Amino acid sequence: MYHPYFRGKQYELITIRENAERLAQAGFLPIIEPVRESLGGLEKALKAVCEAGGQSVVVVNPHYGDHAGGGVSISALLADGFLDKPGIAAGVLLKNGMSVEEAMACFDAHKGHSPTLIHAGFTEGKALADALGTDLATTRHVFIDEQSSKLYRRHFKDGERVLVKDGFEKRSRNRDHPDKEFFSDLHITYADDQMNGFGDFLTVGDDYSESGGPAYAIAIHLTFIDPTADDAMFIYHFKSDRMDTPTDPAGKFAEALTKLVKAVEASGSSIYPTNAVAEFKALKDKEHFPGLGYVKKLSMQHHIETMARYFA
């Protein structure tokens, strides 16, 4: 059903590890694209997924990060530690410029891990479908929305199909976000597109960067489902009041957090009172700033909890 797409930075992997049981109980299947050379965090996350009885797809040929030149160590980790774990699948990222031969070589090399094909700019759809033959129908196909046209997707209509779309239509600096905007209706409409499941890039978005610059504005991103808008999903951007200098991140976090708590406690609020929201409120009570990575983790956790509650 729901396939959240994570880039494997530290707090993304911690989010998976800490929410492994929640993801498994909801039947959600996270996709992980490792971007850090060290795979210790990935291994811990996958062990937590397995212990919870969940599933996950691990991209073996990442497009970004330390493994962009080749994912030999990722394949080795899967082979050495997870070959006997049926819930862990290899993800083959099909990128622009990759040949059908290269795609099939990577697919065949990971046959032991029920490979999932992630269509992200690959152009030889018909030729690949022909090359897969009888494997097409038994393979999961994940389509990154902006990098795979409807015409392209038709070649794989006999397989399990998942559509992943970035909830951020355009990337903005924290200071430029509106207070509230539309995020997605894919959780409602994915079946209309003849898909078996859907996904997104959570509250982080598809744009990848190794590290952010100095934060002039602090923003906390919180999704919510609006029952007055046919259950479409929207996102709040709770921003700090001060945005002119990169100083005092803790004070700016407190400014943004005050707005979040006010919105959560407002009469008729559509924000689910998740465990992540409870932790945000506790941080306000303690007047504590845990760091931007931790804030991002809570935002992602709230998004997962919101999805899980909607489908419960």
Score class of each variant (00 low, 15 high):
residue 44 K to Q: 13
residue 44 K to D: 14
residue 44 K to H: 13
residue 45 A to P: 10
residue 45 A to Q: 06
residue 45 A to N: 07
residue 45 A to Y: 09
residue 45 A to C: 09
residue 45 A to V: 15
residue 46 L to E: 03
residue 46 L to C: 02
residue 46 L to R: 02
residue 47 K to L: 12
residue 47 K to A: 02
residue 48 A to M: 07
residue 48 A to K: 08
residue 48 A to L: 10
residue 48 A to V: 06
residue 48 A to Q: 05
residue 49 V to M: 13
residue 49 V to S: 05
residue 49 V to Q: 10
residue 49 V to G: 08
residue 49 V to F: 10
residue 49 V to I: 15
residue 50 C to N: 01
residue 50 C to E: 14
residue 50 C to L: 01
residue 50 C to T: 15
residue 51 E to H: 07
residue 52 A to C: 03
residue 52 A to I: 04
residue 52 A to M: 01
residue 53 G to F: 14
residue 53 G to M: 11
residue 53 G to E: 02
residue 54 G to F: 10
residue 54 G to Y: 13
residue 54 G to P: 08
residue 54 G to D: 02
residue 55 Q to Y: 11
residue 55 Q to V: 04
residue 55 Q to I: 03
residue 56 S to N: 04
residue 56 S to K: 02
residue 56 S to G: 12
residue 57 V to M: 01
residue 57 V to E: 06
residue 57 V to Y: 09
residue 58 V to S: 00
residue 58 V to R: 03
residue 58 V to Y: 01
residue 58 V to F: 09
residue 58 V to P: 06
residue 58 V to A: 08
residue 59 V to E: 05
residue 59 V to F: 01
residue 59 V to D: 04
residue 60 V to I: 15
residue 60 V to C: 05
residue 60 V to L: 04
residue 60 V to G: 06
residue 60 V to M: 02
residue 60 V to S: 11
residue 60 V to H: 00
residue 61 N to T: 00
residue 61 N to I: 07
residue 61 N to S: 09
residue 61 N to L: 03
residue 61 N to E: 01
residue 62 P to V: 13
residue 62 P to C: 10
residue 62 P to W: 06
residue 62 P to F: 08
residue 62 P to I: 11
residue 62 P to K: 08
residue 63 H to M: 03
residue 63 H to S: 08
residue 63 H to G: 11
residue 63 H to E: 12
residue 64 Y to A: 01
residue 65 G to W: 05
residue 65 G to C: 03
residue 66 D to T: 04
residue 66 D to K: 12
residue 67 H to G: 11
residue 67 H to F: 15
residue 67 H to W: 15
residue 69 G to Q: 08
residue 69 G to V: 14
residue 69 G to W: 10
residue 69 G to H: 13
residue 70 G to A: 08
residue 70 G to L: 05
residue 71 G to I: 14
residue 73 S to P: 01
residue 74 I to S: 04
residue 74 I to L: 01
residue 74 I to R: 09
residue 75 S to H: 00
residue 75 S to T: 11
residue 76 A to I: 00
residue 76 A to Q: 12
residue 76 A to M: 12
residue 76 A to E: 15
residue 77 L to E: 10
residue 77 L to Q: 05
residue 77 L to G: 11
residue 78 L to M: 09
residue 78 L to F: 02
residue 79 A to H: 13
residue 79 A to P: 00
residue 79 A to D: 05
residue 80 D to Q: 15
residue 80 D to N: 14
residue 80 D to C: 07
residue 80 D to F: 06
